[in-house]
């Protein structure tokens, strides 16, 4: 199987691919535990960097080492997410899931590695310019401006006209447009944050635990919205998710992180069937 797993790769730096066939993984996929620093360039040649056809990588990360200050969180991580797909990142607390998204947005310190978005290198692009590359990000907490009204929150991102347009997708927010965002409920706040993300019609949308601290009902609502966005816009969605079972049920592809390393990437169903991985990292 493609996703045979070598446990020694969890923290090792000298692990090599134990299986080169990678039957199910697509060809850009750098999966299970290839942590070697320099021997990972063989896939570059086939990387189609300009196309945004379905199934081609919209975000492509290679050999990423990053963290906060001197504290390294991710050690040599490879990652790619495709257009038209919903990619989930799972893993336990502190495995570096959120940091991976933050790295794309320049919100942590990148030591080495590269981040490409639709063929452009965005590795050290300032945070406020990432949006121009068609990527939007929703933080786990504090993802709306509490003191600004809903309308202002939307206008800050894209001006008044776009704000009205974005409202069409979120009719449930319309009655509150003039109210400060702090008066919203948790679920409404997440919806507003999503509306703000959508304004610039991004190719890539990054969600950091969008359902954390929501009631199950609200969580389902948010996930449904995200899937609908994905279907309607055919864009690339990357989702960090604490609720593994839920994530594995709806995502097209999954990355499993442990202690700052990718220990699995590929089909979510395969991960579920892999008793070893599932019990070790997912507590299943």
């Amino acid at each position: 199987m493609a996703n045979e797993h070598d446990p020694a790769c969890n923290d090792g730096t000298d692990c090599r691919d134990t299986d080169d066939s990678h039957a199910q993984a697509d060809m850009h996929d750098h999966d299970n535990g290839d942590h070697d620093n320099n021997n990972n360039n063989d896939n570059d040649a086939v990387l189609d960097t300009t196309s945004s056809r379905p199934g081609s990588p919209a975000v492509y990360i290679k050999n990423l080492v990053c963290g906060y200050g001197k504290n390294r969180v991710l050690h040599n991580v490879d990652f790619s997410a495709n257009t038209d797909e919903l990619t989930a990142i799972v893993g336990s607390n502190g495995s570096g899931k959120s940091t991976l998204l933050k790295a794309i947005f320049g919100l942590c310190d990148i030591t080495s590695g590269s981040i490409m978005a639709r063929g452009k290198n965005i590795t050290r692009v300032p945070t406020h310019d990432i949006l121009k590359h068609g990527i939007s990000y929703m933080a786990q907490r504090k993802n709306v401006f509490q003191e600004l009204t809903l309308l202002e929150n939307l206008s800050v991102v894209g001006g008044r006209a776009n704000a009205d347009q974005a409202m069409d997708h979120f009719p449930e927010l319309k009655p509150f447009l003039g109210r400060p965002a702090r008066t919203l409920s948790g679920g409404q706040r997440q919806l507003l944050a999503m509306a703000m993300m959508l304004i610039n019609k991004p190719y890539v949308m990054l969600f950091d635990e969008p359902t954390a601290a929501l009631s199950p009902k609200n969580a389902d609502l948010i996930i449904a919205k995200i899937r609908k966005i994905n279907e309607e816009n055919n864009n690339c969605i990357v989702l960090v998710e604490q609720n593994v079972m839920q994530a594995l049920n709806y995502c097209d592809r999954v990355y499993l992180l442990a202690s700052g390393n990718v220990v699995y990437s590929g089909d979510p169903q395969v991960l579920l069937e892999d008793k070893d991985l599932a019990s070790k990292y997912l507590g299943l």
């Binding site: 947005f105 919100l107 300032p126 945070t127 406020h128 310019d129 990432i130 949006l131 121009k132 939007s136 990000y137 933080a139 504090k142 993802n143 709306v144 401006f145 509490q146 003191e147 600004l148 202002e152 929150n153 206008s155 800050v156 991102v157 001006g159 703000m196 610039n200």
Partner: peptide, 25 residues
């Protein structure tokens, strides 16, 4: 003004403002 709105946004939450494309610098 739009500029003022961005200013208030940046004051409240700099990181969020930056991820939303506001040049807080």
């Amino acid at each position: 003004t739009n500029y003022g709105m961005r200013m208030r946004a940046s004051i409240e939450n700099e990181t969020l403002a930056r991820t939303l494309g506001i040049d807080t610098r």
